[in-house]
Amino acid sequence: MQEFFNVNIEDELSNFLGGNFHQDIESPEQALQDYIDRQSKDWIQILIYCAESFLNSNLSDNEKEEFIESNAEIYFPAIELKPIEWLNNVVEQLKKAVITK
């Protein structure tokens, strides 16, 4: 995958998913809000770039879903979303957060 300002997209996305969406969270929504509250506007913009680059990459949907599922400890049937749909929603919420930060 590409690099943006010396940021490895796959590594950053893996760190974001694994570091914020693990078994000890109250809910995925709360974990995302906690992340938004802790991070700078600039870093959230870099994460948006990483997530969008990943979602728009040439990987198959199956490969993308496997990557998301292997890094985020979320039981997707419980939230009634496929992993790609969920990550797209996360990106949209991050974009809204950048506007208000």
Rank of each mutant, 00 (worst) to 15 (best):
E52A: 13
E10S: 05
K64Y: 02
V98E: 02
D24I: 03
A31S: 05
K96T: 00
L94F: 15
V7L: 15
V7K: 13
V90F: 06
C50R: 04
H22V: 01
A97D: 08
Y49A: 11
D34K: 09
N71L: 05
I44D: 05
I9D: 02
N15V: 09
N62D: 12
S70R: 10
A31T: 13
L81M: 09
E80Q: 07
T100H: 11
E63K: 02
A97Q: 08
F16I: 03
K82P: 00
E65C: 12
S53L: 03
E80W: 03
E26Q: 15
E52G: 08
F4P: 02
E69C: 15
H22L: 04
N71P: 02
N88I: 09
L32T: 03
E3T: 15
E12M: 07
I36G: 02
I48F: 13
E65R: 05
L47A: 09
L17I: 04
E80A: 04
A51C: 13
M1I: 08
F4L: 09
E3Q: 07
D37K: 14
S40Q: 06
I48E: 06
D34L: 09
F4V: 04
A97Y: 13
E66D: 15
E10K: 11
D37P: 00
W43F: 15
I48Y: 12
S57W: 01
I25S: 03
K101V: 00
E92Y: 03
V91W: 10
F5K: 11
K64Q: 06
P28Y: 13
Q45G: 01
D24M: 04
K41R: 14
I36R: 01
V7I: 15
M1R: 06
E12P: 00
L47P: 09
E29H: 04
I36C: 04
P83R: 08
Q93W: 04
W43V: 07
P83I: 10
E29L: 06
F54R: 11
K64M: 08
F67E: 04
A72G: 13
L47T: 01
S57E: 00
E69M: 14
W43Y: 15
F16C: 04
F21Q: 10
K96S: 10
N89G: 14
I68S: 10
K82S: 13
D42V: 10
I48M: 12
V98Q: 03
K82E: 14
Y35P: 01
I36A: 03
D37G: 02
K41E: 06
I46V: 14
N71W: 00
E85D: 11
N71C: 09
I79F: 04
E12I: 08
D37F: 13
S40E: 09
P28S: 09
K64L: 03
I68E: 10
Y75S: 14
A51P: 11
I48Q: 07
S60K: 03
